[in-house]
């Protein structure tokens, strides 16, 4: 009987501790990414901009390319195969709430203000 009881205490403790661990992981994994890139309605990548290694990301939509450059904790649309080039003109963007949008190529780079649910602009 005692052994049986110990077994169940151990099971309960295990379940409790794994739930606590899962909660902690879920909680922190939510606020990790400050930038997400969405193309054609799908999140293609999300990352923390601060401390991100310098890199060039290439996104293709219907054969047209967008090149996003990440450097020194900022990013910009380095080039875009689209008629208006509006996104290129936005220049370098830091962390904040400003989205960088290339509508013709359905590309959106969002800075998610991690402590708000949305930003009116």
């Amino acid at each position: 009987m005692i052994r049986n009881q110990r077994f169940w205490v151990a099971v309960a403790a295990f379940v409790f501790l794994s739930a606590v661990a899962a909660s902690i992981i879920l909680y922190f994994s939510r606020s990790e990414s400050t930038v997400r890139i969405i193309q054609d309605g799908k999140v293609v990548t999300a990352f923390e901009l601060e401390g991100h290694p310098d890199e060039e990301l290439v996104f293709e939509y219907e054969g047209r390319k967008n090149i996003v450059e990440i450097k020194d904790g900022r990013l910009r649309m380095r080039s875009a195969d689209c008629p208006d080039k509006l996104c290129e003109r936005s220049g370098w963007c830091g962390k904040g709430s400003l989205p960088l949008i290339c509508l013709p190529n359905r590309l959106v780079i969002e800075f998610t203000a991690s402590d708000t649910d949305a930003v009116a602009r």
């Binding site: 800075f111 708000t116 930003v119």
Partner: peptide, 14 residues
């Protein structure tokens, strides 16, 4: 309640 930021008209953030 929802927490909604308002864009900073002079800068990047809210």
């Amino acid at each position: 309640e929802w927490k909604v930021g308002i864009r900073d008209p002079f800068g990047d953030g809210i």
